[in-house]
């Protein structure tokens, strides 16, 4: 089936897309909704502007939709993007990286229903520790692009999610009840390489911005390199 991937550039949407490919589906287009509202419930992600570079690395076209991020209006923006994907690329469904958020998942389900599209959520209710381990096993290269809950501090910004970091996140879960994969919004991630990337992303310049209890790793320069 030809699918569009709802793509934020983070680990969940990238891994969901990988799963869809493994099950024989073709990702024809990526859809990124860029919200101008930093408080957006649906779409806010640091480094969302780099989905264009990721799309080049994957070699799949990207549809970027700018949304003002007004609460229900941004859903209309997502619907417009999905409608365009259907018209231009003939997609029959979408794949999302939703894990636990019924708020997000039910809204995407509704839009899919309105546009007569299949909706796939292959990570739905997936065990978070297992998700992190599978990312490692499948050689995904992921960095932390944002932290939004103590005791995660500025030291985590830009850190690669390797075996050691995953172990530490699991320990923090036990001690502080932090969701180790960040599904509660504790962590945002950015994927620099995955098995289906034709090229990988090299970060050339970035700034850590940590204030109070949260921070972002703002990538200011990045390019593609051969794998």
């Amino acid at each position: 089936m030809k699918l569009a991937a709802l793509f934020s550039g983070g680990k969940d949407s990238t891994y969901a897309m990988y799963k869809a490919q493994q099950y024989g589906h073709k990702i024809s287009v990526l859809i990124s909704v860029v919200s101008q509202n930093p408080e957006s419930y649906m779409f806010h992600t640091p480094n969302i502007h780099l989905t264009e570079l990721q799309a080049q690395a994957i070699e799949i076209p990207l549809l970027t939709w700018i949304s003002k991020g007004e609460k229900e209006r941004e859903l209309q923006d997502l619907k417009a993007a999905m409608y365009t994907a259907k018209e231009q690329y003939g997609i029959e469904g979408v794949v999302t990286g939703a894990v636990e958020s019924i708020y997000q998942a039910s809204r995407v389900q509704r839009i899919c229903h309105e546009l007569d599209l299949w909706c796939f959520n292959p990570l739905w209710l997936k065990d978070q520790k297992k998700l992190l381990q599978e990312l490692l096993e499948n050689k995904f290269e992921v960095i932390i692009g944002g932290v939004f809950a103590p005791p995660l501090d500025g030291e985590w910004l830009g850190r690669k999610l390797d075996t050691e970091a995953v172990k530490e996140l699991i320990r923090l879960e036990e001690e502080f009840h932090i969701n180790p994969a960040g599904e509660g919004g504790e962590i945002e991630t950015f994927v620099t390489d995955a098995p289906f990337f034709r090229k990988k992303i090299e970060i050339k310049k970035a700034t850590k911005n940590f204030k109070g209890k949260s921070g972002t790793y703002d990538i200011e320069g990045a390019g593609l390199v051969e794998k």
Binding site: M1, K19, V95, F120, N121, P122, W124, K126
Partner: peptide
């Protein structure tokens, strides 16, 4: 109908 949907509707029940 689609095997991919089983990750969403069957796997959570198995878990």
């Amino acid at each position: 109908e689609e095997k991919l949907s089983e990750l969403e509707f069957v796997k959570p029940i198995e878990d």
